[in-house]
Design a protein around this nucleic acid. Structure first.
Length: 570
RNA sequence: GCCUCGGUAGCUCAGCGGUUAGAGUUGACCGCUCAUAACGGUUAGGUCGCAGGUUCGAAUCCUGCCCGAGGCACCA
């Protein structure tokens, strides 16, 4: 039995995520976790909310709530929605938890002792009215280059020139609008990633089996410009993890917090500790410390491409630099972006479908199936309502749902709601078993390799095989001459439905569970081989005809939704 | 501007040096009638973004151009 540690990129706290965020990390991670559990492996699947940073503070202010309260509420909201999508986290933690505070401060101390943290005094823009230092993007003014009046402190959106906040004419805070700004001296900690460049590079070079998307982004950062740059890991903010050197104060760093991108990945570890503290587990170090039982763990991370630099460079630099035997990631599965109807999903403009809205339209299986079978693995991919409608109606309702329906209803009308006896396997059945055996093997190989689209294609092909078999075997015709032979065909077909429940569960857990319940299947453990799997339901076992598993999306609904989600979400 | 990735059938995508370029969907036709008018079969549909080059041979490698997306670091 293998041991799989699986983490999904942790979603930021400032609102409900859209379908593009979901398909880029949490959903494929869940697919993999469910598959590995089904194979009988030990799995720890962790996710959390990423709660620190300026955007969280601003979102809380906009909501008129203290930031801690806002984060606690949004965490609950996100947890509930994750549950709605059947994301099977073993724990859904919070980066603001005490475990992460301790651990982040611990790492900072270790890195400082190793000479990998440098104190740097620099100038940053301070806003008196806001009472805070402002990140470059929160300062706007007139571009000295083109005269555009809403140029941001980091870059002018009009002429695209890179800017420094001090370059702006009439700079003001985008938070308060105040022009009462000044450059002030402030001290920050920098993680000396540059020192570890060679070590990180040879580590990346050794990962020849990783997706090119992952390694190419990592290499770009390693070689871009002057090479891997040191990174500031502290900020002048109130909301975050106080800068401390382990248990001790950090002289000169009073009132500062760690930068969100420093503490967020550490939450992957802290989350395991939360999992234990929540009473769900007993030993988190067994998953994270190679000196305490984690040597045989295989660690897989899932994320969108925007998160790759931090997971391939910054976080590894953090845990390797500590000099302690932490588990380092074995495989990083990264995804491109999902676009929406010819443009991008946009959180700020409310363009596209958000997770809560999706669940209000249709059950999670519909979304899970479409999103996973169209996962943006090799390039950006596109959500269109037409495509969603045709895929869901065809694949789920017609191919799978209708198969279960026709088999169970035919049996009920001819033999009652009991698996019928009689009949023997002939050439058609042998061919079916041969075909299915090969397909199930391919399917498992694709799931193992996290080839999400290809796995979904193979699963669909497996469903199609059932319909082909029925067409060839034609029990409705055979029944007229030889009811016994028809019974054999039906018994095999019922077993096919049961097999589909098992194989489909990682993609569409709710429908799989409905089929399993209807078929009287106790557990959904993976079949050793197809022949034995097709004998799971025996003569005389009772079953029920389930309600239609999937309904179809109508043209009217499509038209309405298309219009509804094109606009702006408040 | 620089860098990265992509541009293959109406649509969503696979193939990434070697037989007549594939799948699903859509369209047309045939079959079946157990089933959510569902299923099965046949078939139509492509100068593989454009132009050069390398090669016995290129969708596949190289160069240039066009189009789309993303990144260019203290933004999450």
């Amino acid at each position: 039995m293998a041991r799989h540690l699986i983490t999904s990129a942790i979603p930021y706290i400032n609102g409900i995520k859209h379908l593009g965020n979901l398909v880029g990390s949490q959903l494929p991670a869940d697919l993999f976790a469910r598959y590995q559990r089904a194979r009988g492996h030990e799995v720890l699947f962790l996710c959390a909310t990423d709660e620190h940073g300026t955007p969280a503070e601003l979102a809380a202010a906009k909501a008129g709530k203290p930031v801690a309260e806002y984060c606690a509420e949004m965490h609950e909201v996100q947890a509930r929605i994750a549950d709605g999508f059947r994301l099977s986290f073993d724990h859904f933690g919070r980066s603001s938890g005490p475990q992460n505070h301790r651990l982040t401060q611990h790492f900072a101390a270790r890195l400082f002792d190793a000479g990998l943290i440098e104190e740097v005094v620099e100038q940053q823009m301070y806003s008196h009215a806001d009472g805070r230092f402002l990140p470059d993007r929160y300062i706007e003014g007139t571009c000295p280059n083109c005269g555009f009046d809403s140029a941001r402190g980091d870059q002018c959106d009009n002429c695209t020139k890179q800017l420094d906040p001090v370059d702006l004419i009439n700079p003001h805070s985008t938070i308060s609008g105040s022009t009462d700004l000044e450059m002030r001296e402030t001290k920050h900690l920098y993680l000396r990633q540059s020192v570890m460049k060679d070590q990180l590079e040879s580590w990346i070079d050794s990962k020849t089996d990783w997706p090119v998307l992952t390694t190419s982004i990592a290499r770009k950062w390693l070689h871009d410009g002057d090479g891997l740059q040191d990174r500031g890991i502290t900020r002048d903010l109130d909301w975050g993890i106080p800068v401390r050197r382990g248990d001790e104060d950090w002289p000169g760093m009073e009132g500062k917090v760690f930068y969100v991108w420093f503490d967020a990945p550490i939450e992957y570890i802290a989350c395991a500790e939360e999992w234990v503290d929540a009473g769900k587990g007993t030993d988190w170090e067994r998953w994270w410390r190679t000196d305490k039982g984690a040597a045989d763990v295989r660690y897989t991370q899932f994320m969108g491409k925007d998160n790759v630099p931090f997971h391939t460079l910054t976080f590894p630099a953090t845990i390797l630099g500590s000099g302690e035997p932490w588990k380092v990631v074995d495989y990083i599965k990264s995804f491109n972006y999902l676009n929406y109807e010819g443009g991008q999903f946009s959180t700020s403009r409310g363009r596209g479908v958000f997770m809560d809205q999706a669940l209000s339209l249709l059950p999670s299986d519909y979304w899970r199936w479409w999103l996973l079978s169209h996962a943006p693995e090799s390039s950006d991919s596109e959500f269109t309502w037409e495509n969603f409608q045709s895929s869901v109606n065809k694949d789920l309702a017609d191919v799978l749902g209708n198969f279960v329906s026709r088999v169970t209803k035919f049996c009920r009308s001819k033999f009652g709601e009991t698996v019928p006896s009689g009949g023997t396997f002939g050439a058609t059945e042998e061919a079916l078993i041969t075909d299915l055996s090969a397909r199930v093997e391919t399917y498992a190989a694709m799931m193992e390799a996290m080839e999400v689209r290809k796995a979904s294609q193979e699963l669909r092909a497996i469903w199609v095989v059932g319909n082909e078999y029925l067409q060839t075997a034609a029990p409705w015709s055979v029944y007229k001459e030889d009811p016994q032979a028809a019974a054999g065909i039906v018994r095999l077909s019922l077993n096919l439905a049961a097999l589909y429940a098992v194989l489909s569960a990682p993609f569409i857990p709710d429908a799989a569970s409905e089929i399993a319940t209807a078929m009287g299947l106790g557990d959904l453990s993976w079949p050793d081989d197809v022949p034995s799997a097709l004998n799971r339901l025996s003569e005389g076992d009772s079953f029920a005809v389930p309600d239609n598993l999937f309904r179809k999306i109508t043209d009217d609904e499509l038209a309405e939704w298309k219009q509804r989600f094109a606009g702006v979400r408040d």
